[in-house]
Design a protein around this nucleic acid. Structure first.
Lengths: 213, 213
DNA sequence: GGTGATTGGATAGTGGCACTTTCCAAGAAG
DNA sequence: CTTCTTGGAAAGTGCCACTATCCAATCACC
């Protein structure tokens, strides 16, 4: 298909697709002549993923390029291919915080990781963006006066662990490594809003149950 | 305290605070003379909340003003004060979608809400931003080829329901309505990254357990 | 009481970023 | 042959969260 059709079927303006091509978010089409290029279903699929990353996941273009690069990196094994793509996803800015609050929170988080038996997480520790995000956001909450004890955090963690198990079950359905990595990224970026929506719906449901209208 | 001290203690540049004052995110200080104003702990607290909303929650300034307005609206009862503030929070853009996919997804979501016994959610329906976000994001997932059946969604929902119950327990600790609303907003905006981090940590943990390094 | 620094407020400017627009020459279509 | 379309390059746009510059009033210190 031609650029115009790719644009049509993807619901994305031609100019925007040109921009994505320029930025390396989409691989160039197969050149058919000096002024024509041919695109296929893979391009359409990738275009949809890019849009999801950028529009729903608010992933910056530069970051999206990086993530897609890892997804396409055939030199990596399954685990690292998925892991690299996931770690490249953006995280909320880490508020500096070399204050005592952070030290305290770090200790609490480490303790609770041990209690849960998440040994991998303890070993990887500060290497994982998720770990750092957990610590810094908890510190911000503390600074705002909403201190969450390790026990409460552990209670939340147990539920998220169940969610993660479901996530991995979903991932098992894919054989190909590239598909696995793509599904993991899509799951992280698109399923987060779904979970957030479910949480808020449940909150609304239980609020009315507890307190009525 | 003076603007300079507020800036110091909040870790926010003076210019930025002036900007927030201009935009109505912070109430003006108590005028002490023609060129001096006095700020108190409440200002500092609000400043921290504003920063959290904008930096961590990526809430646009205009939206933050709206949310804070609801938090401060003493004419509302508890439920609506909390609810209005929550509903004003931003949601990922709703991809248009008047396509058949959306209709199909809507049916699935409605069915699963019934199965779970979330009657409130079914009645409020499209009024709730969370409901619309759920439907549109599910539709996007479907369009990308990652179809999630109502049963799988329900499995996730059960866990998020437990999370929501924990949320409400946390909220119960606050008596004052303004504090309740503030805590709800902070919980929604700041605790979402915490949950996301927990999910990813758990994913990493279980991936290595299932597949090793 | 003089004097330099500081304060709050108004106004205009900056930088980043995701697009858009404009142009162009080479091909395709009728 | 002529009219349209195509892909590509380069410059421009719009939004938005700040940030820099001024200014006159007033504070703090000698």
């Amino acid at each position: 298909m031609r650029l115009a059709e790719l644009s049509e079927r993807g619901g994305v303006p031609v100019g925007t697709i040109k921009y994505y091509l320029r930025e390396g978010l989409l691989p160039p089409g197969r050149r058919v002549s000096a002024t024509q290029a041919e695109y296929d279903e893979a391009h359409l699929r990738r275009l949809n993923l890019v849009r999801a990353l950028i529009q729903i996941g608010r992933v910056p273009v530069a970051t999206a390029r990086e993530v897609l690069g890892h997804i396409d990196d055939e030199s990596l094994g399954t685990t690292f291919r998925v892991g690299a793509a996931m770690w490249a996803l953006p995280h909320p800015p880490e508020v500096p915080a070399d204050d005592p609050t952070t030290a305290e929170v770090t200790a609490g988080v480490d303790r609770f990781l041990g209690d849960l038996g998440w040994h991998h997480a303890r070993e990887i520790g500060a290497l994982s963006p998720s770990y750092r995000q957990l610590v810094t956001t908890m510190a911000t909450l503390t600074r705002l006066g909403y201190t969450i004890g390790p026990d409460t955090l552990a209670a939340y963690a147990v539920h998220m662990e169940s969610v993660a198990r479901l996530d991995l079950d979903q991932l098992d359905a894919f054989d190909d490594d590239r598909e696995k990595a793509e599904a993991a990224v899509a799951g992280a970026v698109l399923f987060e809003p779904v979970l957030a929506a479910l949480r808020r719906l449940a909150q609304e449901e239980h609020t009315t149950r507890r307190y009525g209208l």
